[in-house]
Design a protein around this nucleic acid. Structure first.
Lengths: 233, 233
DNA sequence: TGCAAAATTGCAATGAATGAAATAGAACTT
DNA sequence: AAGTTCTATTTCATTCATTGCAATTTTGCA
């Protein structure tokens, strides 16, 4: 225990380089041959390390694609911990969603191409989809716990969990279902906002289709009147 | 193609028996030694078939535990297709949630012990949790599509997906977070109902903690007045 | 009984993942 | 600078899930 955690030794720098080399090698191979058809041996060889070494950097082949999740999570938890004085639980959660978009966009160290490749791989490979969902799920549990902490006496455990589950569940499914049609970042963001608004307002807001009372004060955002009025299969 | 799908030939009955034998053997071994420490070879040996044969019944070790998902899904889709004349989208979804509980309870061919064992295994093994979440996710997409179909002109794609995601997301996370404390079926059901109500009413319903207007007509269920009125942090 | 389809099996191979011991490379000490 | 300690890497062996293929057995039916 010579020096503290924030070191700059050669050893540490080398490890970071190897880590990047593994990720880059993997992404490149995945892009070229697909996820399933790329072996760990190939990845390790391309990154110039032994196959065994791979496992001291990542817990498995899939872990490679989800290496930056923890950092995001910590920022999310920090945001929740920094709840503003008069802020309601709903507003706090909404702020988290918006902040998440900001983080995703301003993320250096992750080009658009990489992000898109990753998304394509995840959608194509069930194993990766499952892993992604697991991370979301575990993350939501942590967010729910943090929300409960931030709102102490206002929310019980079930309410906090339900709120988080509803909000992110809505956003997730809406974005995923909408994906495949278009892929403009802007459109996705709009979709996510609509879904979030819907979760905040409650599903019953959908129960009055014959135009009326749909302009609740909180309904100001998103919601461009774009869809064709009539439609059938 | 001598006879149609509903046959009773010896061949078919034997297959069903083998299938059950595999499931039973697996559950028994999982219960005794845990999921990870049970090999396919052991399962196959216990069920008196070759290891290779296992794969003509299940797609993998994990598939064994999720064999009854498709049937439930079909019932769910049928329920959605049978939307009642004046029924709102929210009411329809709520009816689906309630029906789901009914199905889970009146399910012969699955004892409480089995259900509980399965739940324990899924919670303990990340790989199984991931698989379960994947099934839920894919299922929700199908439910959203069916809901969209059932409500034709009332919901666009994003609204349908968001509604389904919010409702089931809330129920899922609330139940999961609440699990571990108690395990009474009744309690779980109550938790699920509260979460569903919350998703239907919208998260903003939580935004007015200083007692007032919290007795919306739809808020009749659960919700015992337990929390301390005051709050600060 | 005998034939055709379907199910089962044995065998081999691939690839992910893990454990253990040996080796090489850094960092620190004197 | 040489020696020592700590850590990363490699090598080797092993287990296990999964898949393809060819051989074999079982079942349904004429």
């Amino acid at each position: 225990m010579q020096y503290s955690s924030a070191m700059a030794g050669l050893r540490e720098r080398k490890k970071q380089r190897t880590r990047r080399a593994l990720i880059d090698a993997a992404l490149q191979l995945f892009a070229r041959k697909g996820y399933a058809d790329t072996t760990l041996a190939e990845i390790a060889a391309t990154a110039e390390v032994s196959t065994r070494t791979f496992f001291s950097y990542f817990s498995g082949k899939d872990d490679l694609l989800f290496h930056d999740g923890e950092e995001r999570m910590e920022r999310a938890l920090a945001l929740l911990a920094g709840r503003r004085p008069g802020e309601t639980a709903g507003a706090l959660l909404l702020r988290l969603v918006e902040a998440g978009f900001g983080w995703a966009l301003e993320d250096e160290a992750l080009t658009f191409e990489e992000a898109e490749l990753r998304m394509r791989l995840i959608m194509a490979e069930p194993a990766l989809r499952a892993r992604a969902l697991l991370l979301m799920y575990d993350g939501q549990l942590r967010v729910a716990a943090a929300l409960r902490q931030a709102c102490q006496d206002e929310l019980d455990e079930v309410e906090a969990a339900a709120a988080v589950g509803a909000l992110f569940g809505a956003v997730k499914l809406a974005v995923m279902a909408h994906l495949g049609h278009d892929r403009s970042l802007k459109d996705i963001q709009t979709t996510a906002r609509r879904a979030a608004e819907l979760a905040l307002d409650g599903l019953r807001a959908l129960d009055t289709p014959p135009a009326e009372a749909r302009q609740g004060a909180t309904r100001a955002a998103g919601r461009v009147p774009v869809e064709p009025p009539g439609m059938a299969s």
